[in-house]
């Protein structure tokens, strides 16, 4: 082992804490961006023309915000968003500071994914619920989120995998994590075994998330 990955063994503790930093960044920003993206995605679907709470003004504002945020390359977003990061967490560098750009980088993407997943819910079923006197909240909860659940799980998995990718870029603002280790240590010091090991760990994480997600999506798809 020591012969195969000598530099990784030498920085064993730092490498393991990098794994936890990546998990921390992914989970924490996934939860907050998940709530935010789900809310925005639902709002996009219900306010769009022909939606159950059609509102052209709200729809067009939300739609433009989502498009704008998605257009900013993440590596630049890390920098431009720093005043907001400073305001929210009191610092612009480090693992916790990276959460703010991660959330703003991923939630618009997730909102779009949710929007597409919910648009796949049969419009006729929504209309049937309206004809039965269901309120908008009931339709969102009992029709959209329930009928669209397996798709929601699938897009959530895609989003988490993208998010793991983004955390590696956050190394640019000293976030730590596997991306940071792979670039600023493995790459910069020509310690290739570190870069390769970090890559393999990330691949394993992605594999676990994908497998769990597929299993969960199939589990709710009993019909």
């Amino acid at each position: 082992m020591a012969a195969l990955i000598p530099n990784v063994i030498a920085m064993k503790e730092q490498f393991i804490s990098a794994i936890f930093e990546t998990i921390y960044m992914t989970l924490f920003s996934a939860v907050i961006a998940g709530v935010l993206g789900l809310a925005v995605g639902i709002l996009l679907v219900v306010t769009q023309p022909g939606g159950i709470l059609e509102d052209r003004v709200s729809y067009s504002i939300l739609d433009k915000i989502v498009n704008l945020l998605r257009s900013i390359p993440f590596i630049i977003l890390l920098a431009v968003i720093s005043p907001l990061t400073n305001f929210l967490v009191g610092t612009t560098v480090g693992t916790t500071a990276s959460l703010v750009p991660l959330i703003f980088g991923i939630f618009p993407f997730y909102a779009r994914q949710i929007q597409n997943a919910l648009l796949d819910v049969d419009r006729g079923v929504v209309e049937a619920a309206e004809s039965m006197g269901s309120s908008p909240a009931e339709i969102i909860w009992r029709i959209y989120l329930r009928e669209g659940l397996s798709d929601i799980i699938r897009v959530s998995i895609v989003t988490i995998i993208s998010l793991i990718g983004l955390t590696t870029m956050a190394g640019a603002i000293g976030s730590g994590g596997l991306g940071d280790v792979a670039i600023s240590i493995g790459y910069a010091r020509f310690e290739n075994d570190i870069t390769i090991t970090a890559t393999i760990v990330i691949l394993i994480m992605v594999f676990i998330v994908q497998t769990f997600g597929d299993w969960l999506a199939r589990r709710v798809e009993r019909y």
Binding site: D122, G124, V125, E127, A128, I143, R146, E147, L149, V220, Y223
Partner: peptide, 8 residues
Amino acid sequence: HFNLMKTR
């Protein structure tokens, strides 16, 4: 097209 909920 009946418009039944497929998950129920």
